[in-house]
Design a protein around this nucleic acid. Structure first.
Length: 661
RNA sequence: GCUGCCGUAGCUCAGUGGUAGAGCACUCCCUUGGUAAGGGAGAGGUCGGAAGUUCAAGCCUUCUCGGCAGCACCA
């Protein structure tokens, strides 16, 4: 028999071989470093026999797949066994790998807290030191079930029982120990090849991801090839946490949240400056792109939401208000009578926009109508879902609904993606994940319509050269959608922009236009938002910039101070001059040293600190230091003003810092 | 909503049963200093809330509210 290696060469063998034996014929060092093998594109254990004529690649922990296998082994063999040793009554569920690490879901009888992780880690190190071989055995269904049943591992039993059409279950053993684990593998051949790891957090997770099921304890860990890699990763996380928008929001005095208004933002002057700039920015963009802007009611009667379908499908996420005059008797009930009529705060703007569309008769010639609203929406989000600016209960969307004919969908979708690309470019966002969410099982509309819609959306992205992934079955029931995700400081992704085709709402709310033939037709609605919500977008902007905003968005663009009190009048006059030119500038005349003031303003993320000393006073210049660049530069007053105005006009991104810490 | 952890001064945090602390910020005084903390003094907290145990509770118990991480949810 023979196998093909990644370089295209062949190895001949007399008898059947496994991956390890193939590795040995290549080099001794490779066979020692080998963690698993890829056979015809599939990951397998080194001990698995290799079929004739297979393509074979030996993996080490230097390969991404190899590293992933190592993480898997740490979870399923080391962590799981440590848990069973320390907590014999614990039952194991599943232990997969994730980005940068792994987790294991376990049913404990006792409470596991962060403090227990140290003890578990210690046991893990002890187990690794034993260096047992990891061996795989295959059992038939009945044997596999009885094996785990005897040990009370009912989650493993459930997993086997719910795996149909299989009578071969892989169970990994560890040397002479009694530890076993059901696993699809592959695993390292022995515990001797494990790199550096650390258990990071403990949290709850529902069995099989279903909130109807019991909650298990999930232990997270991270693992790397070497201690050095691990340290680097942990350091990165630490650095990233400094960019947390909640922390920077406090430091820059941008906003706050308080418990009487959970999930609703108190925007402070600095934060609202950013908000306002973004608002006028996006207005400028969409006006140039042919949108019209409207404003619709906050509070509408339940009948309205019944018609739109929200009352049935979305009510648990709505704030409902009884339409009754409240009672003001001392110590009396809030309402004297049981409320019969209800209003609700709008969770979305779309149904209201349809009402505007329906006023007057629309012709096919009127379409498309691109109807925008900076719409303030309230959603009754679960308490546990709230997260700083990222997930709030009151948000303002840069929302719009495009009413168009079916033949205009492709063009309109493309137009939106182009707008989106343009905007995200302006903010320097590069790490954008784009998903095309396709038809879910439960859906409205014919397959023909879905085919057309999905194709139009995919074509638009291809035409624009945008990379995207499909999210099968994740579309809205009324149509496919794009989801634009951004990544926060610690790697969580948040959906910002979206673009959704909707064939259903115009039908439900009976919107129509008159075609060229005089017949009545349903418009298609495209729901779309570029920022998503101002709140979330600003949160992500804070984290991506670490508070070093582009000049045009900077809440305080410049602080000017004299070197001594004698220079202050000149400094103050300059502040007045710049302020009159629209620069957000402040005067700092406090009795402190320059270095102190510089430090303070840099910490507060002021873009420029400008200093006026005797030299500047004589020459009509200003010496500035820019946040993130940290070098002194001297300009004439007019030069500096021109420079600032130019940066605002072009909405320039901040210069990249030269000295990286 | 669920699981776990946390809640002390404006901020960051120390304080495990015996008279509430530190640094920064704030106010005042000295200092007039050329680019990331000059010096001194002062003011500031019913320790998230309620109930309980105790001679005594920031600390122990129960309930409750909030925050954090993850899960579920995210039209």
């Amino acid at each position: 028999m023979r196998v093909m290696l990644p370089d295209g060469s062949f190895k001949e063998f007399e008898t059947e071989v496994n991956g390890l034996e193939v590795a040995k014929t290549i080099s001794t060092s490779l066979s020692k470093a080998a963690v698993a093998v890829r056979v015809n594109g599939e990951l397998r254990d080194l001990s698995d026999p290799v079929p004739d004529n297979a393509e074979v690649a030996i993996l080490t922990s230097n390969d991404d797949d190899g590293l992933d296998i190592m993480r898997h082994t740490i979870a399923a063999q080391v962590l799981a066994r440590a848990i069973k040793n320390l907590y014999p009554s614990a039952r194991l569920a599943i232990g997969p790998t994730i980005k940068d690490g792994f987790y294991y879901d376990i049913a404990f009888e006792e409470n596991i807290s962060l403090d227990d992780l140290e003890k578990i880690e210690k046991e893990m190190h002890r187990i690794i030191k034993e260096g047992h071989k990891i061996e795989k055995k295959v059992y038939n269904r009945a044997d596999a079930i009885s094996l785990f049943k005897d040990r009370g591992e009912d989650y493993k039993v459930k997993i086997i029982e719910d795996t149909p059409n299989s009578d071969a279950f892989q169970i990994y053993h560890q040397g002479e120990t009694s530890f076993i684990d059901l696993c699809r593998g592959p695993h390292l051949p022995s515990l001797g090849k494990i790199g550096a790891f650390k258990l990071t957090k403990v949290a709850g997770a529902y069995w099989r991801g279903n909130s109807q099921n019991e909650m298990l304890t999930r232990i997270y860990g991270t693992a790397w090839r070497t201690q050095e890699d691990l340290d680097k990763y942990l350091h990165q996380i630490e650095e990233a946490e400094k960019r947390d928008h909640r922390k920077i929001g406090k430091e820059m005095d941008l906003f706050h949240l308080q418990e009487e208004a959970q999930g609703s933002v108190f925007w402070h002057p600095h934060g609202f400056t950013i908000y306002r700039e973004l608002e006028s920015y996006i207005r400028e963009k969409i006006y140039a792109d042919g949108y019209v802007e409207v404003k619709t009611p906050q509070l509408m009667h339940s009948k309205f939401w019944e018609a739109s379908g929200h009352w049935d499908k979305y009510r648990e996420n709505m704030f409902v208000v009884p339409d009754v005059v409240p009672n003001i008797e001392l110590n009396g009930p809030v309402f004297k009578e049981e409320p019969k009529e209800f209003m609700a705060l709008k969770p979305m703007n779309c149904p209201a926009h349809v009402q505007i569309f329906k006023h007057g008769i629309k012709s096919y010639r009127d379409l498309p109508i691109r109807m925008a609203e900076m719409g303030c929406c309230h959603r009754n989000e679960a308490h546990g879902a709230l997260h700083g600016l990222m997930r709030v209960r009151q948000m303002t969307q840069d929302d719009a609904h495009i009413f168009c004919r079916e033949d205009q969908i492709g063009e309109e979708v493309k137009r939106f993606v182009a707008l989106f690309k343009d905007v995200y470019n302006d903010f320097g966002f590069t790490n954008i994940k784009l998903l095309l969410a396709t038809r879910p099982d439960k859906r409205a509309g014919t397959d023909e319509t879905w085919d057309k819609a999905e194709k139009a959306m995919a074509d638009a992205l291809n035409d624009l050269g945008m990379d995207f992934e499909y999210a099968p079955g994740e579309g809205a029931f009324y149509g496919p959608k794009y989801e634009f995700h951004l990544v926060d400081s610690i790697g969580r992704t948040w959906q910002c922009g979206t673009c959704q085709l909707d064939f259903v709402l115009p039908e439900r709310l009976d919107a129509s236009y008159m075609g060229a033939d005089g017949g009545r037709y349903r418009p298609v609605m495209i729901h779309r938002a570029v920022f998503g919500s101002f709140e979330r977008f600003i949160g992500l902007l804070i984290e991506s910039t670490a508070g070093i905003f582009p000049f045009w968005l900077s809440p305080t663009q410049l602080v000017i101070s004299g070197v001594t009190e004698a220079n202050n009048p000149t400094a103050e006059a300059l502040v007045k001059k710049f302020k009159a030119e629209g620069i957000r500038v402040e005067f700092d005349g406090r009795n402190e040293k320059i270095s102190y003031k510089v430090r303070e303003h840099m910490n507060a993320k002021v873009t420029y600190v400008g200093i006026i000393g005797n030299k500047e006073q004589e020459n009509g210049t200003i010496t500035v230091r820019r946040l993130g660049v940290n070098e002194q530069e001297t300009y004439t007053v007019d030069e500096f003003l021109t420079k600032m105005k130019e940066e605002i006009k072009t909405r320039a991104l901040p210069p990249t810092p030269k000295d990286s810490e």
